[in-house]
Nucleic acid binder design. Structure first.
Length: 513
RNA sequence: GGCGAGGUAGCUCAGUUGGUUAGAGCACAGGACUCAUAAGCCUGGGGUCGGCGGUUCGAAUCCGCCCCUCGCUACCA
């Protein structure tokens, strides 16, 4: 069986600066990517920016800039976000790159060849100020003028020549696919939404625009640019060297194992994307996971409420591992979750500082004082010592299962529980009581607890990579040895070399109200 | 309006095919200890499981009605 794994984030539309939603999608994907590598998979983890479309073109014009140069700047802020979030993406794709342009044009040609594209007219009530089309029943007449019921703005009847994709022809094929692949759309509630939506029937999709030019042009008609979503979604293929399907990367990684997305773009990934691929006669990705939104104190973040939480500020104030941990521990993946300073503080202090951080500190300090700063050799383990280690080892298949089902909450709950247990074990075993009367017993306890810390740290590594690396480096485990495999190995600890010093891992957050 | 999900301790949630005193974490209160970031450990209080009615020896769990909350309801991305 090939041990390859392809995971993606959405490519982000850089019309504004990066926000918590971008950070959240990226962090989730990074955790899976890191875990899979730790499991021994050859992982391709992709992120990037989606740069075409009317909005960007207008923004660029407003700023008096060439759209490409404008995008270069915007894209860079997203590229720097990957560094701030400590993402381990293997590539960063931009839809303005040549490799992507080639790939989109090939997809277009395939859709033309399969007969799923036709030229027609798109017409409807259009509001210039809203940049949106409205249906007949969304329009009312007031003082002889047609306006939108929703926004109240003026609408005019417009007709625009457009290429259409025969989405309506894919209803049955899509439903069949959802049915045969129960896990194609997750979580289940999202899957139901999509199925209900598709069951109601699908309209053909307008997939070209003539009202602006910032995009990839339709190969056979220079007046048209390709609809941004057909353009954007194709990035997942461009990055692995499509259209060269004999390319090594393409062969290893397509179909993608999972697209991580926010619930707001579910339809594009769960309906349009598979339909495009079916039409292009390409295999479909295995899974689309739509996560929820991060709210601020239970409210949607907005400028008017003044409750916007900037991930970059939070990271600056509290740290990247702290944010990563919080988002995974406190937010139920798939549901909306809220971030509050109170919960963030509790989470950092309890789980990270007092629990895992202090555990490492108390153990390493004890070893420094009483064991010449070296991990004692494994000798004369008692039942309770063996049990502690064995319980964790036994849980590994279950933990891998949780990751494969995107159940990060259950995963982290179990791993953190090992850390609670470790503190209890250390308390109950009282190594300090054996300092003068039974060195052997003391050494057995210390060896066991360090072994346990090693294992917990490996399991926590995908979530809090920076801190766990520090801990593992303290006990001379190098980055390349951070593997699930090394939890199973006995006698993996280096008992000959003095431990490196470890600074406080997580500073506690003081009350400042 | 239509379709869907859900209402369990102050907060976030677990509760398998109905079966003994309804669970966890956080928050709160008390206790013994000291290796450690005044950390960790132990103990405890607190719930008419949205409301009413029904099926049953027995319902948070099944059925009916009602109340409330949230999501989706097609071309900005």
């Amino acid at each position: 069986m090939a041990k390859n794994f392809y995971i993606t984030t959405p490519i982000y539309y850089p019309s504004g600066k990066p926000h918590m939603g971008h950070a959240y999608s990226s962090i989730i994907a990074d955790i899976f990517a890191r875990f899979k590598r730790m499991e021994g998979y050859n992982v391709m983890f992709l992120t990037g920016t989606d740069e075409h479309g009317q909005k960007i073109q207008k923004e660029a014009e407003k700023n008096n800039k060439d759209p490409k140069l404008f995008c270069d700047e915007l894209s860079e802020t997203f590229r720097s976000l990957t560094k701030i979030l400590k993402l381990t993406n293997n590539d960063f794709i931009r839809t303005t790159e040549t490799r992507h342009n080639k790939s989109v044009k090939e997809i277009w040609k395939r859709l033309v060849k399969s007969g799923d594209i036709y030229l027609d007219k798109y017409s409807g009530w259009y509001s210039v100020s809203d940049e949106a089309y409205y249906d007949d029943d969304e329009i009312e007449e007031k003082e002889g003028k047609k306006i939108s019921k929703i926004s109240g703005s003026l609408v005019e009847w417009v007709e625009e020549e457009s290429y259409f994709f025969k989405l309506s022809a894919f209803q049955k094929k899509l439903l069949d696919h959802y049915n045969k692949n129960q896990e194609f759309i997750l979580p289940k509630s999202r899957r139901n939404e999509v199925i209900k939506f598709v069951e109601k029937g699908l309209k053909d999709l307008s997939i070209s625009r003539t009202s602006f030019s910032w995009g990839i042009t339709v190969p056979e008609n220079k007046k048209h640019v390709i609809y941004v979503w057909l353009d954007a979604l194709t990035n997942y293929l461009s990055a692995i060297n499509f259209p060269n399907i004999d390319d090594e990367k393409y062969k290893l990684f397509w179909p993608a194992d999972i697209h991580i997305i926010g619930k707001d773009i579910l339809r594009f990934h769960a309906i349009y994307w598979p339909a495009f691929l079916l039409a292009a006669n390409l295999p479909l990705p295995k899974k689309v996971f739509g996560h929820g939104w991060i709210l601020s104190d239970d409210k949607k973040m907005s400028k008017s409420l003044g409750n916007i939480l900037d991930p970059i500020e939070i990271i600056r104030d509290y740290g990247i591992d702290q944010l990563r941990y919080y988002l995974i521990k406190e937010v139920s993946l798939g549901n909306d979750g809220s971030i509050s300073m109170e919960n963030l503080k509790n989470c950092i202090n309890n789980d990270l500082a007092n629990n895992y951080g202090n555990l490492c500190q108390r153990v390493f300090a004890f070893i420094k004082k009483n064991c010449d700063n070296k991990i004692p050799k494994k000798v004369d383990l008692k039942e309770s010592d063996i049990l502690l280690i064995q319980n964790l080892k036994n849980s590994i298949p279950k933990l891998i299962g949780f990751i494969n089902k995107q159940n990060l909450n259950e995963y982290i709950r179990i791993v953190v529980n090992f850390s609670f247990e470790a503190n209890k074990y250390f308390n109950d075993s009282e190594p300090w009581a054996f300092k003068n009367k039974d060195r052997n017993r003391m050494n057995a306890i210390l060896h066991t607890i360090v072994e346990h810390i090693k294992n917990i740290s490996i399991l926590l590594y995908p979530i809090i990579p920076i801190s766990t690396k520090k801990v593992l480096n303290t006990i001379h485990i190098s980055d390349k040895d951070i593997l699930i495999e090394n939890i199973k190995k006995d006698n993996f600890l280096n008992c000959k070399t003095e431990l490196k010093s470890l600074d406080i891992l997580f500073k506690k957050i003081e009350n400042d109200n």
